[in-house]
Design a protein around this nucleic acid. Structure first.
Lengths: 161, 161
DNA sequence: TCTAACCTTGACGTAAACGTTAAGGTTATG
DNA sequence: CATAACCTTAACGTTTACGTCAAGGTTAGA
């Protein structure tokens, strides 16, 4: 009764303190305001709310999601379309989870889990592929460093003579 | 005397068998001819030779390099500009290696190695960053799979009752 | 030597991912 | 309540990484 009414007890001003303007989100995430609007345009991130005057208001969750998006974009080089699908897959899993919790029959519950697992395994394949390619590159570079180290040791011995 | 004249003993036809047309390279690498021409335009890959009539002729090395480029582009999501710089850094290391071999003074040789190492370490940082981001994602997904496995076991036990 | 099947260099087109005004509405603050 | 500072949508501009003709030259094979 107390926990569930947690938000109902907040007034306007307090609610506004919970949310962020587009400017605040932009500086916090290192993205531009244009980018945030664009991401909404292409269905990547809809801010949680809008003010009376139609100003965007972002929640902490929104900021989290933006972080995810940036990671997928910058570090992993996914296209925005790819990212949207990845995040959609996650949301789909969330839905499956809800359905799972509401399901009473055990065999149906197990089936939901299987469906979810398939989505996860698809993503794991993508990731594994990238990781092994990167590890190969890393190994190659490390081998070069080691060879240089060996050469340096030889040179220093030579110097001693 | 035999090994150094290896290529001089080949006639026109045999040389042509060593090289590949743009079409052949395209099919082999899974890229389009347009892409190959574009990569030359932006300074990413210059085919080893040209025929009398100005047709591009690619060597096996060229194909290797294209493979590298494709990997960096598709798997790691680097831009063509990034890739050009990465490959340039590698070529720079090659140059340092040559200078290194021609250098007689030990301290200078060691300095060359250091220069080369710095380039390598820069690339390693980039790669490590990407790998750890990917590993985090992988771990998160695997944890989910395990949780599902646990749930399944519980459900099956429940069924037995 | 002739011709079909290649290749060449322009040059214009396109999708993705934003950048940049422009014209006007909203909000916060003295 | 005025107004500076912020926000909105709309619309056109830009860069990257190619796709797609077009007009003409080259090559390989009968």
């Amino acid at each position: 009764m107390f926990a569930t009414d947690e938000y109902a007890s907040l007034n306007e001003e307090q609610i506004q303190q919970q949310t962020l303007t587009i400017e605040q989100v932009a500086t916090r995430t290192g993205m531009t305001k244009r980018t945030l609007r664009y991401y909404e345009e292409v269905g990547l991130l809809f801010p949680t709310g809008r003010t009376e005057g139609n100003y965007r208001r972002y929640s902490e969750e929104d900021v989290q999601r933006l972080g995810r998006i940036k990671e997928l974009r910058d570090l992993l080089g996914f296209s925005l379309t790819d990212i949207r699908e990845l995040l959609l897959a996650e949301e789909e899993r969330e839905q499956i989870k809800v359905a799972y919790n509401q399901e009473t029959e055990v065999s149906a519950k197990i089936a939901q889990l299987e469906r979810s697992d398939n989505l996860i395994r698809g993503q794991l394949l993508l990731i594994d592929e990238k990781i092994s390619a990167l590890e190969q590159m890393r190994t190659a570079l490390r081998v070069k460093l080691e060879r240089h180290e060996t050469k340096r040791t030889l040179l220093r011995n030579e110097e001693q003579l």
